[in-house]
Simulated assay, not measured.
Amino acid sequence: MRPLILALALALAVPPLALAAPATAAGPGSGSAHGPRDLRDLARKHRISIGSAVDVAALRAEPDYRTVLNREFDHVTAENAMKWESVEPERGVHTWDDADEVVRNARRHGQRVRGHTLVWHNQLPGWLTRGVADGTIDAAELRTILREHITTQVRRYKGKIRAWDVVNEALEEDGTLRQSIWLTHLGPGYIADAFRWAHRADPHAKLYLNDYNVEWNAPKIEGTLTLVKELQAQKVPIDGMGFQGHLGIQYGYPGDWANVMRRFADLGLEIAITEMDVRMVLPVTPEKLATQAEYYGRALSDCLSVKACREFTVWGFTDRHSWVPGWFDGEGAACLFDENLAPKPAYETLLATRRVSGR
């Protein structure tokens, strides 16, 4: 996700071993015989994936951005390049160049890929939303269009995507299903349909439900758990739960997050932190950076304490390209690296984070 979400969320708000990376230059971490030298090294030591969302324009145009991305991360997510409005801006006319570039760069650099996202209520192409609004696309046709979209996109990247965020942000804050275009016109069965269609298109990809505020919001946690159990009772192929992890230091850290992860893991799901960032009210101060570092470190520690947590992905790694300032007035500085790609205290805190329990 994001842009185009969390505008209403003003509250708080790892696979088998990752593919081996090619030789890369040493990172900015101090490193030692016992400590990791960069985030890739940290991922290897903890046997999880550590990833970042990718801004494809920066990937193409900024050599320093590419260098840090490919040095530090063994897992990537297309920030916007795989969303529906990006891949099919006109009906039947697909534009795969940006998504292909993310996948191509990942394969060159030994990174696994998270597909994001197949079904969401935002960043839909205009032809689709207009057609539904004016009645030229009825419910039966909408269901066909959704099936074709999922099938086409998943098949294109079959064998190249480790995991898909199949349905993104399906619940309201009170734990009920979101009143989206999909629920309104297709009913609650669209969720099960989406997972089944994605599984048929690539039986080996891990299929996730992904949402925000599930780190702490009790009604949403309970509603999401209920949804997962209902899907499992219907034999729907759901493999994982993604916690977005958009936090702010002006709010308390979600202190029960590890236990919430375990509740989903106890249902047999993989766990991933999929969109981690920690914003602050500007201006930046050393004290705020220290609190931010604490939040990042606690989140990784929580993940490492849960055996089923396979992935820790940040939603962009540099403040140069963060979505936060555009959506939270007066807030920013949410990433591990600043605008000049200098590592912040949070980066060093991640390198120093150790497993609390065996995995």
Rank of each mutant, 00 (worst) to 15 (best):
M1S: 14
R2P: 11
R2Y: 15
L8W: 12
L8M: 12
L8D: 12
A18S: 14
A18Y: 01
L19G: 11
T24V: 14
G27W: 06
G29I: 05
S32G: 12
H34A: 11
L39E: 03
L42K: 02
R44P: 06
K45V: 10
R47L: 13
A57E: 14
T67L: 15
L69G: 02
H75W: 14
T77E: 01
E85Q: 15
E88V: 07
D98E: 12
D98Q: 08
A99I: 05
R104H: 11
Q111Y: 05
V113I: 03
R114P: 07
G115W: 04
H116Q: 11
L118N: 01
W120L: 08
N122T: 14
Q123T: 12
P125S: 04
P125W: 02
G131A: 09
V132E: 03
V132D: 10
T136R: 13
A139F: 13
A140R: 13
E141V: 12
E141M: 13
L146F: 09
T151G: 14
V154R: 03
G159W: 01
K160P: 09
W164S: 03
L171I: 03
E172T: 01
G189L: 04
A192W: 08
A194W: 09
F195R: 03
R196D: 11
A201T: 07
A201E: 04
A201D: 00
D202F: 06
D202V: 02
D202C: 01
H204N: 10
H204E: 12
K206Q: 15
Y212D: 09
V214Y: 06
A218C: 10
E222C: 08
T226E: 11
L227K: 01
Q234R: 15
P237C: 08
D239A: 09
G248Q: 12
D256N: 12
R262E: 12
R262H: 07
R263K: 10
R263Y: 09
E270H: 15
I271R: 01
V284S: 11
T285P: 06
P286L: 00
E287P: 04
L289N: 05
Q292K: 03
A308Y: 04
V314A: 01
G316M: 04
D319A: 08
V324R: 05
G332M: 06
A333G: 06
A333Y: 05
A334V: 10
A334D: 05
L341V: 10
P343W: 06
P343C: 05
T349R: 13
L351I: 05
